[in-house]
């Protein structure tokens, strides 16, 4: 069983662990690093619940082998606020504007899709500060939500985008 020393920077912290080559990034994040915010909804890349960032790109952790992201920088939902704080020299306790907007706009119901949605939406807002409705829909087109009907999620992304522009 080939194993490798896996080196990752996860939420700003260097991590080093020995992991079998066939371990997915989702297994590493949830089972080995105990970051349970990243969810497993289908294990087949069809629901978006496991979305996190690999070197800033939203990726599906369930269909990514950990070894293929060796030395990459990983941001999970637990680290998003910290990432945001670092970008804006802000208090570490502050939320990313999209996290706050999700709570305020009613974009959270059962919450299971929320971490993936927020990671996808936050990447969009980083690259496209004032996204159109169509851009939001395209960016979140791989994220299933069964509770909200999506409208509140779109509103949350729009609201966060507006707030980020106002405060920029």
């Amino acid at each position: 069983m080939p194993e490798s020393v896996l080196r990752l920077i996860v939420n700003g912290r260097p991590q080093q662990l020995v992991a079998a080559d066939e371990m997915t990034l989702l297994e590493v994040v949830r089972d080995r690093l105990h970051l349970h915010g990243t969810k497993d909804g289908c294990a087949a890349g069809s629901c978006g619940s496991c979305t996190l960032w690999v070197d800033g790109v939203p990726r599906l952790a369930c269909v990514t082998l950990a070894k293929t992201v060796q030395d990459c920088e990983i941001v999970t939902i637990e680290g998003l606020a910290g990432w945001w704080g670092k970008q804006h020299a802000a208090d570490a306790a502050e939320l990313h504007p999209l996290q706050a907007a999700f709570a305020e706009q009613g974009a959270v119901q059962c919450g299971f899709c929320t971490p993936g949605m927020v990671m996808g939406g936050a990447a969009l807002l980083r690259d496209t500060p004032s996204p159109s409705r169509a851009q939001i829909q395209e960016a979140l087109s791989g994220h299933l939500c069964r509770c909200t009907g999506y409208e509140q999620i779109i509103r949350a992304v729009q609201a966060a985008g507006r707030r980020m522009l106002d405060e920029a």
Binding site: G45, T51, P58, L60, G120, E138, L140, S141
Partner: peptide, 9 residues
Amino acid sequence: VGSWELRAQ
């Protein structure tokens, strides 16, 4: 093809 994340990968 697929979705935003699937195309990124």
